[in-house]
Amino acid sequence: MLYRRIFQFLIVYIFGILFLLIIKFIFSLSDYVIPNILLIIETAAQVFKEYFFDVINTLSVTILGQCISICMAFFVGISGRKSSWIGSFIKVTAYNIQAYPIVALAPIIFILIGDGFISRLLIASMICYFPLLLSVLGIMATPVKDIEHFYIITGQMKWHLEVKIRIFENLSKLTTVISGSATLAMAGTIVAEFIAANAGIGYSIRIALYQSNLAKILIALFLIGIIISVYQGILEVIGEQIKSKWSISKKGTIL
């Protein structure tokens, strides 16, 4: 699965580069507008190491941001799963916060807490948390009637049991959503770095943009793509393992 993801990314990336080179050829553009292949390779040799560590830096914030957003989404999803007043209040608040564009909120965040690690983390979490929340809310608010019925009529149903049943029954869906949200968390971190941070690949891309250096941007995109593919692949593998452990080791009696 991991190799397939990387391979698929490479195909997309190569096609992207080829497309740019065709445009360059058709319109006779200079290397300033679209760099030639040699310039891309030369630039890669110069900045690969630096950018690799920048992407790792960004990824570390991404992972942490994603963990926070998963916790937030589960907290809100579990708290807001009931159709009670408090449940609907939590849902409305969660939806409204997301209605504000993050690029408008970002400057306020940076003024309040500066352009360091915390700002990047907060923005990354905010960007990737909403899709997670929607899925978690959807899952948590939908009863698994066949199973839950038994516990309800025997009087054994507790809130954490209800949550466990719903998570287990929707594990594949949750794994896919969490894996998919990694891309959003990465995008969120890069946006934060792009707007106002002093580290990470988003910050490096901004510097490259100042200098209109498309070759550097292409290298950055390559590294972001590869590393996010690996990360997503790992998440999927972990999800698969959790699922098989839950169903095999407990022989379906985990609940």
Partner: peptide, 12 residues
């Protein structure tokens, strides 16, 4: 600086 950078990359 934009102009000189572009000329360095053969912009016409």
């Amino acid at each position: 600086d934009q102009v000189i950078r572009a000329l360095d990359k053969k912009a016409k």
